[in-house]
Design a protein around this nucleic acid. Structure first.
Lengths: 347, 347
DNA sequence: CCCAGTAATGGAAGCGCTCCCATAAATCTC
DNA sequence: GAGATTTATGGGAGCGCTTCCATTACTGGG
């Protein structure tokens, strides 16, 4: 047993300082230094102070890889975005989401790994990455019916939270805004205003948010004894809203109200209405959905249902941290955030 | 010397398979398995095949943390975005950039860590993170004059590439579009069209791209013997474009041409022109900048200078990988991508 | 047929960290 | 005041991987 070198604090010249160097500088063992750095449990005040000072002096930061290796945590979480979506480009939704997530992660010094999930082969890459525990958890933002993400994650046992109620799997936690209620509120606003022939431009049929809003519209219409036949689907883009509005007005020229499932689509609809010489809100009143900036800048400014997207992102992230800290709960969390109507000029 | 347990392939039940298990399954040593997995240098065909098979069978993926610890690489790169910017929300620029970066990183199985750099204390967090070598390199997207990022990164010795020419430090590599030329081209287009009183709505003065475009406009105007006094600055948003246009038209009611430094601002300008009853392009011809989707949807559709943003992001990322692989070059790389005019109806 | 040269291999040393455990010191209990 | 507990501490094992180095198995040249 000839142990030549205990290995302490060699290579002083190179790279960043190691825990060993901190311990040496503080005059304690590596174990004590480690404890002091990680919350200071069972560490005397003197030792704590000495370590703190050494850390500051040497500008020590723990090596994440080394820590990861033993703790089996990566201190990073993935945000999964469905890349196929051209919307990622135009929709403020995603940026708002990222910002909210980032805010919470920053508090705990966690990293945000962005996974732009492409379909097909690249989608498999995303799955594989998640399967291999390269992150402590995943936030899935806008998933579509057939991406299989919900089931996959549920079976994986990886902490994960969805933004927006997922399809199929009832196993995963999610945070959603109350789209059903939002759709109803929007519709009732028009009804109370006196509109009787109200159409809706709904979102894509493979997203739950769109379906819920449509259901809300339908519910409110039926409750008021009005016909729920004026429906057209768009893809959440301005162009989509435009063509949907054209189609809708062609089929139902007598419309006096329009519930649109996103502000961007509402912009398209306003364009059509203006082009047809219909005044908003006098001839046709319009209610949008989102209120993420666009709604204030339209002419006329949009009355719309606000999604508190920052709050949504924050809550989802905290839910995720909760899962990471205390394990995935038996019963998945389902948080539904109320949304409220913002009155402007269009209705 | 009583070595009780060599430590090979214990814990078969738990988590993901380790290299040890792969080696055992393939009937080779851990060292050989490692070699086979990392490119197969000095590995016999049989051993290679055996390892490959074992990897497939066990669904082995290397533990990134363990690898990182020894290789001193993290296999991830940071994309730094200046968070203060509300633009991150509305501008398709960032999303396009992320997409381009992601495409290249995916090829090499590198991760994208998103750093939303907030100003002040949080900015320090970003710096610290970068200093601590938690990533192999950094891509900085839209930096502003005073964020100090360029100098900091240059002094850090961390591989990094800027998207858009940075201020100050001439030490860092960057990829930019030829904004000077772009501004000139836009202006010349109007001149050739017969416009003689051409104004410009420039971008914020703390961004090089905006300054370069303005300079391009000025150069073209002076070269044609025209006055370069009709300048107004906006902040790259629609609202900004609107107020800049109002101010400009108030000061120079005789304008017959307008060079706008971003499509989004051009949208605002079009609004003002329409409101004032000026026809586009008959009374005032307009050229925008970007062509990232908005330009096609305005009325009239915008003639604009296209920024090949996907290409820009890709080139920047490849430049970064180059640096990561072969070290930071003595002479920083400066790649300027030409941009071209896209003719539509507004000029 | 022997020896230098090359190719393939495995042993073992760490990378920097956390955490289990044994030990030492301080405090309490009756 | 002796034994039982609590509190701090450091030794050391080991997380899963790469890579240096020594070893062995093959070549071909003289």
């Amino acid at each position: 047993m000839t142990r030549v070198d205990t290995g302490r604090a060699r290579r002083t010249s190179a790279g960043s300082p190691t825990l060993d160097q901190v311990a040496l500088a503080a005059g304690v063992s590596r174990a004590t230094a480690s404890r002091a750095i990680n919350g200071g449990d069972r560490v005397s005040p003197q030792a704590q102070a000495a370590v703190d000072a050494a850390v500051r002096r040497l500008r020590y930061t723990p090596n994440r890889a080394a820590r990861s290796l033993v703790t089996r945590r990566t201190d990073s979480v993935a945000v999964v975005l469905p890349e196929p979506d051209e919307r990622v480009f135009s929709d403020p939704f995603f940026a708002g989401w990222l910002r909210g997530v980032n805010r919470v992660l920053a508090e705990r010094d966690l990293q945000l790994v962005l996974l732009l999930a492409q379909p097909g082969a690249e989608g498999a890459r995303t799955m594989r990455y998640l399967s291999n525990r390269h992150v402590d958890g995943a936030l899935v933002v806008s998933h579509h019916r057939d991406d299989g993400l919900a089931d996959h994650l549920a079976s994986l046992g990886l902490p994960s939270v969805f933004g927006g109620r997922p399809w199929s799997s009832e196993q995963v936690s999610y945070v959603d805004v109350d789209n059903l209620n939002g759709g109803q509120t929007a519709t009732r606003t028009l009804i109370e205003r006196g509109c009787r022939r109200i159409g809706t431009i709904a979102g894509p049929t493979d997203m739950t948010a769109a379906e819920d809003r449509l259901r809300g519209w339908r519910t409110a219409m039926l409750a008021a004894g009005l016909a729920d036949d004026a429906v057209e689907h768009g893809d959440f883009t301005e162009d989509g809203g435009e063509s949907a509005a054209s189609a809708l007005l062609a089929r139902h020229p007598d419309l006096d109200g329009l519930v649109v499932a996103s502000d961007l689509m509402a912009v398209g609809a306003l364009k059509v209405l203006t082009a047809q010489g219909r005044r908003v809100p006098e001839d046709v009143a319009v209610v949008g959905y989102d209120d993420l900036g666009v709604a204030e800048r339209t002419t006329p400014p949009l009355t719309t249902v606000r999604q508190p997207i920052g709050e949504m992102a924050e809550r989802a992230t905290r839910l995720l941290l909760e899962q990471i800290d205390h394990g995935i709960p038996e019963e998945p969390a389902r948080l539904v955030i109320p949304c409220r109507l913002v009155r402007r000029a269009s209705a």
